[in-house]
């Protein structure tokens, strides 16, 4: 169900895989309660380092998308929550879209907008 990440795209492999998992859940290709492939089998299928798979699963667990039941497997978190999460993301995406549009109209370049976002997020992390 997942595509092989492209190692030379400039986007880290774990980011590519994480996006794929997220996308599968948002489009409901993976539904609440569905089990994801095991670490070893996914690493073998995609021919990527198993630690990369572990990292993606852990991060998505922290983000409340997946649940890791030790010794059993990795599952998509319960319907209600993951669904509202997908909706939240869609709403947020809409807001970001409008915001970026406004900034562009004010004459900011894409790179500048990206930097502002990154600086803001980096500042967030430091303040925490």
């Amino acid at each position: 169900m997942f595509r092989k990440p492209n190692p030379s795209s400039g986007v880290p492999i774990y980011v590519q895989l994480k996006e794929q998992v997220r996308h599968a859940i948002e489009t409901e290709a993976l539904k609440a309660g569905d089990q994801l492939p095991g670490i070893r089998s996914l690493a073998e299928t995609l021919v990527i380092n198993p630690n990369t798979v572990i990292r993606v699963y852990r991060e998505l667990e922290q983000e409340g998308v997946l649940e890791i039941r030790h010794g059993i497997g990795v599952f998509v978190i319960s319907r209600r929550r993951s669904r509202s999460r997908a909706e939240e993301m869609r709403d947020a995406q809409h807001l970001v879209h409008e915001f970026v549009d406004t900034l562009k109209k004010q004459g900011l370049a894409e790179g500048e907008i990206r930097r502002l976002f990154e600086a803001e997020l980096a500042g967030e992390i430091q303040r925490r």
């Binding site: 190692p7 030379s8 492999i13 070893r40 690493a43 073998e44 021919v47 990527i48 380092n49 198993p50």
Partner: peptide, 23 residues
Amino acid sequence: VSLAAQGTTVFFSSHQIAEVEQV
């Protein structure tokens, strides 16, 4: 990848940088 998932340590030299990035 499969052996690594089972706990084997792998040390390999290579000129194929794309495969290195992958595994």
